[in-house]
Amino acid sequence: MPQIVVTIDGKTYRMACAEGEEQHLETLAADVDGKIAELRGSFGQIGDLRLTVMAAIMATDQLHEARRRLAELQARLDADVTARAAGEAGEATTREEFARTLDETAASIERISAKLAGGQ
């Protein structure tokens, strides 16, 4: 299992990850480091633990918002798929009715033609 070293808030941490996940873990650690730096810039020296907890809450809030947005988009997609399926079903019904009407009209024309041909 690969191990990498990341730096967060000036402290280094050795971490294990799955094969091929090294760059992803480094990116995540850089994001956490950025959040802590942002908080430190806003609040000053309020304690490492408090900064870490605030950064975790910020990240969790962003995750929560992303999940909420994803659920909203999924609901819209589901509604669109349902509406499209209903529309396609309606179109199929309309085509069937048109074909039936056309068949009935053709039969009527044939009957009229037969009567006209028989009357001559």
Rank of each mutant, 00 (worst) to 15 (best):
A106M: 06
G41D: 12
I109Y: 08
R14S: 11
D78F: 07
A37R: 13
T27K: 05
G20N: 09
I4E: 03
V5H: 11
D61F: 03
T7K: 13
A59V: 01
E96M: 08
D103H: 07
A55Y: 03
G90P: 03
E110C: 00
T105P: 05
G47S: 11
D33F: 10
E26K: 11
Q45H: 02
M1P: 04
A29F: 07
S108W: 01
T52E: 15
L28A: 12
R100V: 15
A59Y: 01
H24E: 12
Q62H: 11
T52F: 12
Q62V: 00
L28W: 01
Q3Y: 02
E104Q: 09
A99I: 05
D31F: 00
I57C: 15
G34I: 06
A92S: 11
R40P: 02
S113Q: 15
L51A: 02
R84Q: 03
R68M: 08
E96L: 10
R69V: 06
Q62R: 13
I36E: 03
F98W: 12
R76S: 02
G44I: 00
C17L: 07
T105R: 14
L25K: 01
Q23W: 07
A117E: 09
E65K: 06
A66D: 10
L25D: 00
A66N: 09
L116T: 15
D61H: 10
M58P: 00
D61Y: 04
G41H: 11
L51R: 02
L77M: 12
E19Y: 13
K35M: 12
T105N: 14
A114I: 05
L73Y: 10
A79G: 04
A30M: 03
I57K: 11
A85H: 06
D78I: 08
G44Y: 02
G44V: 01
R68D: 14
V81G: 06
D103V: 04
R95D: 07
I57A: 15
D80E: 10
G119F: 14
V6M: 04
D48T: 12
E65D: 13
R100H: 15
G87E: 10
T82M: 10
M1H: 07
C17H: 06
T7A: 08
L102K: 15
E91V: 06
V81W: 09
F98K: 13
I112S: 08
E21Y: 09
E65W: 04
K11L: 01
R76C: 02
I8K: 04
D61C: 02
L116H: 08
R84K: 05
E96K: 11
V6S: 06
S113M: 15
L28H: 03
T93S: 14
P2S: 05
R95E: 09
M54P: 04
T82S: 12
K115S: 15
H24G: 10
T60K: 12
L63P: 00
D80W: 09
A106G: 00
E21P: 01
D80T: 12
L102Y: 13
E22K: 08
A107R: 13
V5S: 13
Q74D: 04
E65H: 07
L49A: 11
T94L: 14
T101A: 13
G34S: 06
E26M: 11
E88M: 08
L63I: 03
